Amino acid sequence: MSGGQRLSEQHFVKFENDLDVASGHLATNVKNLVLALEAVQTGWTGGAAGEFDVAQRALNEDHEAVRKLVERIKEAVQLTRRAGGANDQELATTFRKANGSGGDGSGLKSKLDDYY
Rank of each mutant, 00 (worst) to 15 (best):
M1F: 09
G4H: 08
G4S: 09
R6M: 13
L7D: 04
S8H: 06
H11G: 02
V13H: 08
V13F: 03
K14G: 03
K14N: 11
E16L: 12
D18V: 02
A22W: 02
S23N: 05
S23G: 15
G24I: 01
G24A: 14
H25M: 11
H25W: 12
A27I: 03
V30K: 10
K31A: 14
L35D: 15
A36M: 09
A36Q: 11
G43I: 04
T45I: 10
T45Y: 08
A48K: 12
A49T: 06
G50F: 05
F52Q: 05
F52C: 06
D53C: 08
D53T: 11
V54N: 03
Q56I: 06
R57Y: 03
E61V: 07
E61P: 00
E61F: 01
E61C: 02
D62Y: 07
E64Q: 14
A65E: 03
A65V: 01
V66S: 02
R67E: 13
K68G: 10
K68S: 12
L69E: 07
L69T: 09
L69N: 08
V70W: 00
A76S: 13
A76K: 06
L79M: 10
R81K: 14
R82D: 14
G84E: 10
G85S: 08
D88C: 04
Q89I: 07
Q89V: 11
E90S: 05
E90C: 00
L91A: 09
L91P: 02
T93Q: 10
T94C: 03
F95K: 12
K97E: 00
K97W: 00
N99T: 01
G102S: 11
S106K: 08
K109N: 10
K111H: 14
K111I: 00
K111T: 04
D114H: 11
Y116L: 10
